[in-house]
């Protein structure tokens, strides 16, 4: 089993969709929310995903395709 820490950033139109529920429902991925801030206009969630590595990657690809931005939890690693 692998673990991956990620940050989801939701655009306004996705705020009301149960993305994290559906992620765990459609893929064999356990999501564990650690921090979050959601308002009516924007939102982000920092969470740990646990599952088989391929399943996590498939899940992240699905979330990304839905329009949610997925970043490493530590922010951008590439620097100037």
């Amino acid at each position: 089993m692998a673990k991956k820490q990620v940050m989801f950033t939701f655009p306004e139109e996705m705020i009301r969709e149960p993305i994290i529920y559906n992620l765990s429902h459609q893929f064999k991925v356990v999501s564990n929310i650690r921090r979050a801030d959601i308002s009516e206009a924007k939102g982000w969630v920092v969470l740990e995903l646990e599952g088989e590595e391929q399943e996590i990657e498939r899940g992240i690809a699905w979330v990304t395709a839905k329009g949610v931005r997925v970043d490493p939890v530590i922010g951008d690693i590439v620097e100037g």
Binding site: T9, D71, V78, G80
Partner: peptide
């Protein structure tokens, strides 16, 4: 909130600080 960087100042073009 993260952005997609687009500037000539590449050394500080970080979208998700």
């Amino acid at each position: 909130h993260p952005v997609e960087p687009n500037t000539i100042a590449k050394s500080i073009a970080i979208g998700n600080p």
